[in-house]
Design a protein around this nucleic acid. Sequence first.
RNA 1: GCCCCAGUAGCUCAGUGGAUAGAGCGACCGCCUCCUAAGCGGUAGGCCGUAGGUCCGAUUCCUACCUGGGGCACCA
Length: 552
Amino acid sequence: MSPADLADAIVAAVGRAVADGDLDVPVPTTVTVERPKNPEHGDYASPVALQLAKAARRPPRAVAELLAARLTAAEGIARVDIAGPGFLNITLVGAALGEVARRVVRAGASYGHAEKPRDVRINLEFVSANPTGPVTLASARWAAVGDALVRILTAAGYSVGGEYYVNDAGVQISRFGASVLAAAAGREIPAEGYHGAYVAEIATTVLAERPDLLELPGDEALAVAAQRGLTLMLGEIRSTLESFGVHFDTWASEKALHDAGGLERAVEDLRAQGHVFDADGAVWLRTTDFGDDKDRVLIKSDGQGTYFCADAAYYRDKRGRGFDRVIYLLGADHHGYIGRLRAISACFGDDPDVNLEVIIGQMVTLTRGGEPVKMSKRAGTFLTLHDLVDAVGVDAARYSLVRQSHDSSLELNLDLIARQTSENPVFYVQYAHARISSLLRGAEALGLTLSPEGADVALLTHPREGDLLRALGEFPRVIESAASLRGPHRVARYLEELAGVYHRFYDVCRVLPQGDEPAGPLTDARLLLAAATQLVLSNGLALLGVSAPDRM
RNA sequence: GCCCCAGUAGCUCAGUGGAUAGAGCGACCGCCUCCUAAGCGGUAGGCCGUAGGUCCGAUUCCUACCUGGGGCACCA
């Protein structure tokens, strides 16, 4: 019996109490089922009686009595105690709890995932770093978080498209081109340009491709430097992200949006919606009608579309591709975008609360030797994603970037990262998985085969076995909450807990027979439990894009 | 000035209104003739920033304030 099954049973008990005329409340569609910290509080607990007491105009304990009597009769429930102000403390019959292990193994890689798809198409845009330099550490966080979110939302039943917006038009690209050209010519990089060592490398490659670069007319040389430099840089970004295990379904080009007339069409649409006005020679969008602090310029007085205009066109483009909900994962330095993005959504006639969502993630800071490290892309003083992966590997990098809530700023200690010791919790989780793999190899060597159907799960009565079964039963709810709250770190924290529960089980519950002992029914049951744990660890790590090693 | 995020153990951080607030790391004491000790057990360590409020119940929700970080362009 899973927590969800139990919640259904409680709802049914409320329904019967109401039908019997003992309780006068609206029957809730869902109720809270908790896993108590204190083992004396049963396998599961519910404060439902406390929550219904007010509506029922009865003391909580009286409501609890009514429900307990009906719940006790439900299949799989051994005992229901009323405790404290009116908590229902529920103890399952051993077999009902043990069934979780069988259920996990039967479901395999799909355990924890939503059983039916949801009819919502989500577009999640993340990273979208300017292609004027390598992927920085700040972007690396959004790469890890965004990619995990795509996987988690998908597991939760949504149809999700991950997207990277390439800002390949505009002033920054010109500056980048000028920097590349200057480096190629051996001139000093302009003050407004990009100063990282990578610019020289790009310049060398461009020069090798186009030995005539420096002989070209100024404008043409600049265009070639910008275009080729951008292509090379973007290629590097893509391969870095790819090797980081981060996948994008769509690479959207701002330039392509411009070239296809997307901006003009967006302005037309907005004008048709009645939110566009002309002033001071520029074309404006009246975003203040929808809560923005000030109206925004769409077309500058020089005839150029603004970046804001491109944003509007891009939003329109995403919606036009059939996405119901357009999510932006942005760094805190883009917090000011929320108002204008909501206004854009509203100006197109959408509901910003339904069709749009902006997730703001806090910054990444670095410390080295206890001192904060300043990073600037233009100055070329930053740690890249590539550097980080070189130092600690993909697994540790992804895990450390994703295990913290995006709401709090992330402090990475470079000394610690460089050390690559087991101080990272990812090893703790991976080790539990490897340990189980080893155990299962041992079982195989003894000629034991896993029998999900034959195992007698009622034998799993040890307290540590109960802990493990309840932890396994949580996984679907963890995915659900990680998806709905957009918090991939919840999966990581859960895996750490599950690994801990397994290690404690393993410490006191012998699985394989010792010496000449024969394997018994308990061996089968525990092997099933171990295999179920391995599956959940593996499924969970997969959601984070972290490998589940069979050996360490 | 206005807006957003954070403030919880020595450090880094979990905790979507529930019972005695947790984890990792760090400190100290133990546990491998036995399925992986990258593990386990134990000890120490907390006015959950402050003050009010709502509630049967607040670390969680509301208000004000304090501290730290970020943001408020016809820039990209």
